[in-house]
Amino acid sequence: MMHMSLQGEYETDLTADIRGYAQAGVNYRGGSFTSFNNKNTYNTKLPAFYMISAKLGVRKDAWDLSLFGDNLTNKAAYLGVVESLDGIRVFSPRPRTVGVRISSTF
C-alpha cells in the first residue's frame, strides 16, 4: 500500500495587525487488503482513493477565523471493511464538510 500526502500554506499581511492565509492538502492512499492472509475468507481489497481539503482564514492577535472544506470531492472511500457471517460493515470518512471555525489561544 502506498500513502502520500501533500500540503501547502501561504500566509501574508492583510493589514498591520491582520494576517490572511490559505491552506490546501491532498492525501492519497493506494489499494490495500484487509488481511495479510490471502486464505482468509473475508480478505477484501480496498480501492485506492484521495481526499482534498482547503482552508481560508485570517488571524489577529490570539484569534483565528477560517472557512474550511474537508473531503471536497465528497469521496465515499473505504477506510476499512469488516466482513462476517452477519453482514458487511464499511468504514468511510465523513462526507463533504464545509464550515466556519473561530478559535483563540490563551
Rank of each mutant, 00 (worst) to 15 (best):
G30R: 00
V26L: 07
K39D: 12
I18W: 12
S53D: 15
A48C: 05
T44A: 07
K45S: 01
N27C: 05
I52F: 06
N40K: 07
T34D: 02
G31C: 05
I52Q: 14
T12Y: 09
A48T: 08
N40D: 11
S32F: 01
A24N: 13
F49A: 06
S35K: 01
N37W: 11
A16Y: 08
A16W: 15
P47A: 00
K45N: 02
N38M: 06
T12Q: 11
K39M: 13
N40C: 06
T41N: 06
F33H: 06
G25T: 03
L14W: 03
Y21K: 04
S53C: 04
T34A: 00
Y28S: 10
K39Y: 08
Q23Y: 08
S53E: 07
T41L: 08
S35F: 02
A16I: 07
K45G: 06
Y28E: 12
F36K: 05
T34K: 00
Y50A: 12
V26R: 04
A24C: 05
K39E: 11
N38I: 05
G25H: 06
P47W: 04
V26K: 05
N37A: 11
T34L: 01
L14Y: 02
T15S: 08
P47C: 04
K45E: 05
M51D: 10
T34E: 02
G20M: 05
T12R: 02
F36M: 10
R19K: 15
Q23H: 13
G20L: 03
L46N: 04
D17V: 13
G20Q: 05
T15G: 04
N38A: 07
A22R: 02
R19Q: 09
A16L: 08
R29N: 14
T41A: 12
G31P: 10
Y42D: 02
S53N: 15
K45W: 01
Y28I: 03
G25D: 02
G30Q: 00
N43A: 13
L14K: 01
N37V: 12
Y50W: 10
R19H: 10
N40E: 13
N37M: 09
F36I: 10
D13K: 14
A48Y: 09
A54M: 03
R19A: 13
F36P: 12
R29D: 11
V26E: 14
L14E: 01
Y42A: 03
A22T: 06
